[in-house]
Amino acid sequence: MKFPRIIRRLLMLLAASALLLGIPVAATAFATPGTTGTGWIRLAHLSPNTPAVDVYLYSFDNSNAKIVLHHVAYGTVSPYESATAGDYSVAMRAAGASPTSQPVLSTSVTIVAGHSYTVAGMGPESGLRLQVMDDDLTTPIGQSLVRVIQASLKQQKVSVSFGSTVLASSLAFASVSPYQAVLPGTKTVTVSAGTGDANSSVTLAAGTVHTLVVLDGATGLEVVNLEDASGSGKPPLGGVSTGFGGTAPRGPGSPVPWIAAIAAGSLLALTGGLALRRRQLNTGI
């Protein structure tokens, strides 16, 4: 039996409504958490008997130096510079040497996004080398992270403590201790060596990362406290509840009443349509 035209149209309308209902609400895409594609690097001269140098940082694909530090003397550590993630080389030349001259030393370093590095000239002048160190950027909650670089040639081995916490024991010249988590506070750093100790007061705050560098001073040993990184000592939990909703777009609301209306309308129209059809059949028109 053929459906009357009006009923076919109603069915088509219902089918079309069902299709439209099935259209998914566009999903909101959120940015993935954040690397910005950059890391950090700092340069240092920690070789006691090596004269001042010029230090160059080159990007792998560019012969123009990204950073040039002139006349860097023993004990100097630069601030961190941000650098696009990728491959770099660090070159050292005698202070004042032509930028195109053959470097005394060079090494390659790969900067990974979100990571930081220290590249230091280490060792005695006769065995000078460039050492690349991975610097830490995370601390256990409520603690401070600290390591020691032994850059004293006068004392071949040193032991270093922060208060009563031993940070390094018999650390050899031109070596680096691993980072160690310590309880924060202001305490005395003691450097013990064969022929004498050195003391200095050092503050290590929660949420900070430090490097203590043991240097040959004019007389005896010196300790330099480098701040490698700093964050919130007590990091807040989770996100932030800002906003009271006064400018929020209104939500789409429930579709149920509209669907009910469409269903009721269909029923009404169907009833009317069928009644008309019956009447047409009865009267034989």
């Binding site: 609400v25 509209w258 309308g265 129209a269």
Partner: peptide, 28 residues
């Protein structure tokens, strides 16, 4: 019967329009 058919169609059109118009949140 005609009235029922016509009213039913009006309600269908209204319901569909309401549904479609409220699927998108108002602009901020």
């Amino acid at each position: 019967a005609l009235l029922s058919l016509a009213a039913g169609l009006v309600v269908i059109v209204g319901g569909t329009a309401g549904l479609l118009l409220t699927r998108h949140p108002a602009q901020a």
